[in-house]
Design a protein around this nucleic acid. Structure first.
Length: 285
RNA sequence: GGGGAAGUCGCAUAGUGGCAAUUGCAACAGACUGUAAAUCUGUCCUCUUCGGAGUUCGGUGGUUCGAGUCCACCCUUCCCCA
């Protein structure tokens, strides 16, 4: 019997959660999340985690399983997701994967090259160098140690340059030598369903959802996280704006407006990512 | 009624004689293999064969080779005194 992974993608607030739950019910199976923020237990309201009822209706995996203090990343996600999916396939013929983190979804579909993680000390060291020496110096190091990647990188994006150097300094090998970019072949079928909404409707849904988050106690959730605001996971729409509010930089209303705007921009980025995903069956809701 | 300040490309902001005009935001398009709800790029008056061309800075008129910038009047807004 062949196994099928149903992947539900779409912009934030497009209705993935309820669609996936409905689908999982019909298929009598469970859901694996592909959301880089819902995976953290400290983040709930602001990342639109499925409600208690929804989580009860269908069993969800990889939601609220890690702490924001962990050093989580796509590679870890891919390993975990794949092992959960494999296990689920031993009970079910179908499994549903649902999420808006394009890179995470892609890691499940195509796999991701095996290369080293970044130790925190090295990262902060490199960030230091970026601030003191400047990007140009680091670019020269990259050019010297990995000419190939140097010609490919976005030289204006420090994140990309730093990541390459993180790998190079740890291993002594060129970053590009790890980047085979070979697509793995999964031993199950994949069916991708993309959810679409008209621009206006998506905007309306985002605005409404942000208002609901405030009603649900977003302010309190974020307030409790203020001490940890510098951790990467909290560099997230819905949190950073409120950190600014607690800093006295902006009013609550301004924060709320900014969250709406930034969520819209995030949705746009998700769509440009998903648009280039192959074999998506798009559904206009 | 008297006095003062100001009106710039969606919003905000720079510009005081050579400017299609600064910067930020928004918007739009895009990139992205370990921070990814992150990070980064391009476009953003109109048309364009991408070299340019044509219209702009509340309105009208004027000074000047040349005006967003100077002058006059008008319109509008804000502040202070009445």
């Amino acid at each position: 019997m062949s196994k099928t992974l149903y992947i539900v993608i779409g912009a934030t607030a497009s209705g993935k959660t309820s669609f996936a739950i409905e689908l999982a019910r019909q298929l009598k199976t469970e859901i694996v999340s592909a959301d880089s923020r819902q995976i953290f237990k400290e983040m709930n309201i602001g990342v639109a985690r499925p409600s208690e009822d929804e989580l009860k209706a269908v069993k969800h995996h990889l939601i609220a399983t890690w702490s924001i203090h962990e050093n989580y990343n796509v590679a870890r996600y891919e390993k975990e997701a794949m092992s959960i999916i494999a296990e689920l396939f031993s009970y079910y013929d179908d499994v549903v994967l649902c999420g808006g983190s394009g890179m995470y979804v892609n890691a499940v579909i195509n796999g991701i090259d095996d290369m080293p993680d970044t130790p925190v000390e090295l990262r902060s060291q490199l960030n230091n160098e970026l601030n003191t020496l400047g990007l140009e110096v680091l670019l020269q190091e990259l050019k010297a140690k990995d000419e190939k990647y140097y010609t490919e990188v976005d030289k204006q994006n420090p994140r990309r340059v730093l990541r390459a150097l993180e790998v190079i300094r740890q291993t002594g090998k060129p970053f590009s030598s790890f980047r085979t970019e070979e697509k793995v072949k999964r031993n199950f079928d994949i069916k991708i369903i993309g959810l679409q909404r008209s621009r206006q409707e998506l905007i309306n849904r985002i605005n409404k959802r942000v208002d609901e988050m405030f009603d649900a106690g977003l302010l309190e959730e974020v307030r409790s996280l203020v001490p940890f605001k510098s951790v990467p996971a909290l560099s997230t729409v819905g949190y950073r704006e409120l950190f600014d509010y607690f800093d006295g930089k902006i009013s609550v209303n301004q924060a709320s407006e900014l969250i709406k705007i930034h969520t819209r921009q995030y949705a746009k980025r998700q769509m440009t990512w998903f648009r280039k995903t192959d074999n998506v069956e798009w559904k206009m809701l």
